[in-house]
Simulated scan of single mutants.
Amino acid sequence: MQLFFLGTGAGVPAKTRNVSSLVLKLLDELNEMWLFDCGEATQHQILRTSLKPRKITRIFITHMHGDHIFGLPGFLSSRSFQGGDTPVTLYGPKGLKFYIEACLNYSRTRLTYPIEIVELDPYGGEIQLPNKWKVTYLPLNHGVLSFGYRIEEPDKKGELLVDKLAEYNIPNGPLFGKLKRGEIVELEDGTILNGKDFVGEDSKGRIVTILGDSRPCDNLTILAKDADALVHECTYQADETSMAHSHFHSTSAQAATVAKNAKAKNLYLTHISARYLGPDAKALEDEAKSIFPHSHLVYDLNEFSIDYRK
């Protein structure tokens, strides 16, 4: 599981940062990828990577501001020309369906794959997905309806410790399956083995929280609780609280406080104003780290692995 940031800027594209978009890579887990927001020129950013648009099966939109959706019609259209023939499901606030259908209709775009558009309950809810994956969403505080998403992976059963079994010379077959299920088996020579002794510990499923634009509010912390990775906007410096509030955004210090209160493992700061370059951008990270040490200022095309907790 990896987070791949395609665009980390706020408002408008800049030379150093494109507008909001990121991919949650679940290739090892589900052989698919999920896209969160799709700002202008997201498909251009993808061309600079090894990402395959046909692997993107779900798209989650946080809110309907242009810097989060203007790249969506182009991406959906281009996916048809890049070998994409599998269905795509889109989730987001009310208005998403009208926006996509209008763009496709007026541009006479015909997709080579089916799409489903799910407009979410403005009060929040859960999206139940195959293989026991779950996405919880709640409204934030951003002037327009803006969602935060909490992605929960199912717990992973312990792996069979094949090296530990090597000394018993067990042939491939049903015995391995029984041992992996923790059952007791008897070998041909009368040796009794307890499968529980040959299975590693279960791994608790990872939690990834991806938040839309927002002022500080309780739902940020609820969604971020115990997250292994928390993606939080960081539009302003810590001393610009008043400006952040007036524009329905958060500061570096406010993002770090959410991570600290939620007991998250790592905080990734994105949605950075184009005003912050070089040392000024680094200052955002330093401000956050003074509150939450595991804070990371994110740049376009950065990728981060999300490991299981030990």
Rank of each mutant, 00 (worst) to 15 (best):
G7V: 05
G9L: 08
V12M: 13
T16N: 15
F36W: 02
D37K: 01
G39C: 00
A41I: 02
A41M: 09
T42S: 03
Q45H: 04
S50M: 12
L51T: 07
K52C: 11
P53L: 07
M64S: 10
M64D: 10
D67R: 09
G74A: 12
T89F: 07
I100H: 03
L104K: 04
S107C: 11
I117P: 04
V118S: 10
V135W: 06
P139T: 10
S146H: 04
R150D: 00
E153A: 05
I170M: 08
I170P: 03
P171N: 11
N172I: 11
P174N: 10
L175H: 02
E183L: 09
E188L: 05
T191W: 01
L193A: 04
K196I: 09
K204T: 13
R206N: 05
I210A: 05
L220M: 14
L223F: 08
K225I: 06
K225H: 12
A227C: 09
C234S: 10
A238I: 01
A238L: 04
T241L: 10
S242E: 15
M243I: 14
F248L: 04
V258K: 07
H271N: 14
L277G: 01
A281L: 07
A281D: 03
F292C: 04
F304Q: 07
D307C: 10
